[in-house]
């Protein structure tokens, strides 16, 4: 029997009267990269945000169904949302470092979680930077502003910042869409390394990126999951004709 990290059952999400996610049921395995793909407005980013309750911040949003992480329903009333978001980190399309030093960005999470000892924070910053494949580039300039870094480096600072609180799951919403090919390759290599210890869910519009980095793929269309399959299968012999049309660019 397969281990499941995130179990989604009959998930429906409404923005006011708009039915944005329809009857979604998926089992996402631990230490795997799952890519969510589909045309704009199909619900993939909305789905991603349900996994750490980012949609709670939208007034008109209403959710039905269950999402369990490690067999615990993340929408039950007694869930500590801050603790949930510590466990389920998120990286956005546009890097969003704080206007602070690199060191302060990465140590921010541990600090608000009560770590005060300088030596401990130093260690967390170094480990997080190493994990984010950033250490060699920033080790001599940790006190410089993160805003002064390149786009690719800023994105990796954000990843290091997310890793600093030891998340078990990382949600990535088009993390490389604003980056050049070299910075993109670094992020993709990083994803490959990180999956040894973290479960990763990535939204991407770049089909080749989905093919390169993911183990499994979910194809979203109009709020529904049309196909959830291994990436190998998805890109060689998809089961649904709509998936085939989408990945071969014949959609529409």
């Amino acid at each position: 029997m397969k281990l499941i990290k995130i179990q989604v059952e009959n998930l429906n999400l409404y923005y006011g009267k708009v039915h944005a996610l329809k009857n979604i049921s998926l089992g996402l395995e631990p230490n795997k990269v799952t890519a969510l793909m589909g045309p704009s407005g199909c619900g993939k980013s909305t789905f991603l945000r349900t996994l750490n309750r980012m949609n709670d911040l939208i007034d008109s949003c209403r959710i039905e169904g269950d999402i369990e992480i490690d067999s615990e329903n993340i929408y039950s009333k007694d869930v500590d949302v801050v603790a949930l978001r510590k466990k389920v980190g998120m990286i956005f399309q546009k890097s969003n470092p704080f206007p602070k030093s690199i060191y302060d960005n990465i140590s921010y999470g541990p600090r608000i979680n009560g770590v005060t000892k300088k030596s401990e924070l130093d260690e967390i910053v170094e480990i997080s930077c190493v994990k984010a494949a950033l250490w060699n580039e920033v080790k001599d300039r940790l006190n410089e502003s993160a805003i002064g870094l390149s786009g690719g480096q800023q994105q990796r600072v954000c990843i290091a910042r997310a890793l600093a609180v030891n998340p078990e799951i990382l949600l990535m919403d088009e993390p490389a869409s604003a980056l050049d090919p070299i910075a993109t390759a670094k992020i993709e290599e990083l994803i490959f390394e990180l999956k040894n210890s973290i479960t990763i869910i990535i939204v991407t519009h770049n089909l080749q990126q989905a093919a390169r980095v993911s183990d499994k793929c979910a194809f979203f269309l109009s709020g529904e999951v049309v196909e959830f399959n291994s990436t190998r299968k998805m890109f060689t012999k998809p089961e649904d004709e709509r998936t085939q049309r989408y990945i071969t660019g014949k959609f529409g």
């Binding site: 089909l207 080749q208 093919a211 890109f235 060689t236 012999k237 998809p238 085939q244 990945i247 071969t248």
Partner: peptide, 9 residues
């Protein structure tokens, strides 16, 4: 074009 699926085949 990095073809996939039926196109690749």
């Amino acid at each position: 074009t990095q073809p996939v699926a039926i196109d690749l085949r």
